[in-house]
Design a protein around this nucleic acid. Structure first.
Lengths: 100, 100
DNA sequence: TAAAAATACTCCATAGGTATTTTAT
DNA sequence: ATAAAATACCTATGGAGTATTTTTA
């Protein structure tokens, strides 16, 4: 499981189609299409209803967009914390939204 | 940022050396060594003190093992939730430890 | 019939293994 | 001297692009 995958999924949810999401993710349409297929294979789950054009998010995914967004935020936060090496960020009085 | 990276780091923390962690992660010593170098490069951070053998976790990492473990758990949880497609897991009265 | 998505193909960088060398204890 | 880690070398595969084909609306 990769942060990039979550960002891909969120991009599709936000953009409403694979092609537009591809642009936002700075990939060609075909590369992005293949990447989503790979992610679905890796997760062992169909993420989209492909009998619609543009593709529609499956309900199971739609219902978890919040969880996906928060998990992605947690990953980015950790990435930052490790980079900055700021020891005190774990002791915050008010945790960042991603951790609430 | 990848779940596998977090698991690699946790494996080193737990095992106390790269070679033992490599076994646990089912990689050869050399492959694991290179992988950790790649992760450090990707994060832009030195994770270990390499003037010791076995390597020692840098304090900035040691201080964040909890955060790393919780973030990894959140990723695994999401992975599972997506696979199972169980819509209700987001509505739990008592959230799983990884989300508290 | 037009837009969206999937596929065929080609190419190169990534990531793995084995064997060997370097380094800290 | 020994155990741990890094490096050299080789190979296979992943993941990108362009061009084209298929499919839904």
């Amino acid at each position: 499981m990769r942060l990039e995958w979550l960002e891909d999924i969120l991009a599709v949810a936000d953009a409403g189609s694979l092609s537009v999401a591809a642009e936002r993710r700075r990939l060609t349409q075909s590369a992005f299409s293949r990447r989503m297929q790979f992610i679905e294979q890796a997760l062992g789950v169909q993420l989209f209803d492909r009998t619609r054009k543009p593709v529609q998010l499956r309900p199971a995914v739609r219902d978890r967009l919040d969880q996906i967004a928060r998990t992605a935020a947690a990953m980015r936060q950790l990435h930052n914390d490790l980079q900055l090496g700021d020891r005190r960020s774990g002791n915050r009085v008010v945790p960042p939204a991603s951790m609430r």
